[in-house]
Amino acid sequence: MENAMTEQAGNHPLAVNGPQGLSAERRFELEAMPHLQDLTRTASRLMGDRTRAEDVVQEAYLQAWKSFSRFETGTNCRAWLYKILFHCIHHYRRKWFRLSVVKPMDEYTEATAAYTAPIPEHLTDEDFVAALDKVPSDFRAVILLVDVEEFAYRDAADILGVPIGTVMSRLNRGRKILREQLSGIAAEFGYGISMEKEADA
């Protein structure tokens, strides 16, 4: 990706007309721009504040434009943009602070073989956002990709540059932590969700 990102827009090989008779700029507008909301949403939840999220999304779009000549029309533009976004997020974090490394969980089967407690009706959208924000970032990233943005495991693995097994274990662990956080929020408001019910299985 580094090589792709060094290409200069001024020499963009598709700068005049692409295969469909549209300029590269127009094709980029049609294919990449519709995903801006999705990328901003994901970045906001991973970066913690809107300004930093907009910084990385803007950088991701800039890098995407510079390597747009390498993008094959008709392939998954959204997954391609997400891959660039996560590259930018990783770069941004390495630049500004050290990531706490979270080791993936191996006990995938064991952890999913349990009944869970229902989600209380009273929890608001803000409660869900607050609970998700408390999930460690590596797990949160997978939840955002699979549960919210509905990427297949294979695509999520490609976007994050990790094996599918890691996606599955992080997803499982992340969902468990999310339920625990929701349970904590519910308990604060006396809604009575209890994770102990999981042991009921």
């Binding site: 909301q37 949403r41 906001s44 229902p118 955002l144 549960d147 919210v148």
Partner: peptide
Amino acid sequence: RDQLRAKLRQALRKPAA
């Protein structure tokens, strides 16, 4: 489990930009 995903999507899938 499906409800958890649905509620999460509902909570997060709002215009962000």
